[in-house]
């Protein structure tokens, strides 16, 4: 889990770099792109975990996003936990192909952004209509994040392969140690 958490943290940092390269425009009619590489990495990682681990990991990163990115209190914490719960429900019906990974990421980004939009509308912090929200904020975000998921899935597979090979090495060393122990007997 530590390696997964570190990987997700690095993806959030990459989001910071991407937000510098694609700065958000505050003009109402402009299209904006919100980099969600960290969120996608979180969602793709949560698939492997049980419900409690997934919820706790998502909660931690939600708090992290609240305090260090969005400067809010518990909004993203709650949203991330809800998303983790949804992913744990859906994962039973999914495989780990790239196509399904893209669909999962787009859907979770859409759900998260949609819930955030509803909260902003309820708290009267935005007057964007649904159409404007979808066209100006979501369209470009979903499209470009879908493209980035290709890269992300490859990176996750490389990371998993690395962890697997590391574990195999450990197991192999344990086996050798056990053989040595047996031979001494």
């Amino acid at each position: 889990m530590r390696m997964d958490a570190l990987f997700i943290f690095v993806c959030f940092l990459v989001d910071s770099a991407l937000s510098m390269l694609f700065p958000i425009s505050y003009a109402p009619d402009d299209f904006i792109f919100i980099a969600s590489l960290g969120f996608c990495a979180l969602v793709l990682t949560l698939r492997k975990y049980q419900l409690l681990d997934a919820v706790l990991l998502a909660g931690c990163f939600g708090l992290f996003y609240d305090f260090f990115y969005a400067n809010t209190y518990l909004i993203n914490f709650i949203l991330y936990i809800l998303i983790a719960w949804l992913v744990c429900i859906w994962r039973k019906h999914m495989t780990e192909t790239i196509f399904e990974s893209i669909i999962l990421c787009i859907t979770t980004i859409f759900v998260k952004e949609g819930m955030l939009y509803c909260i902003m509308r309820i708290m009267d912090q935005t007057s964007l209509s649904v159409g404007e929200w979808f066209v100006n904020r979501e369209f470009l975000t979903l499209t470009l994040n879908a493209l980035m998921v290709f890269v992300l899935v490859s990176m996750i597979r490389i990371k998993d392969d690395y962890l697997l090979s590391k574990e195999k090495r450990i197991r192999k060393e344990e086996k050798i140690e056990w053989m040595k122990y047996l031979s001494k007997r």
Binding site: S16, A17, M20, Y69, N71
Partner: peptide, 28 residues
Amino acid sequence: GNLIAKLGYDGFTMLNYALISHPAELVK
């Protein structure tokens, strides 16, 4: 306001800017 949010946000934002955003901007 939230003290942790303020302190954390300030510190992380400065670190983020110094280590990530500013170098990315320089490269750009």
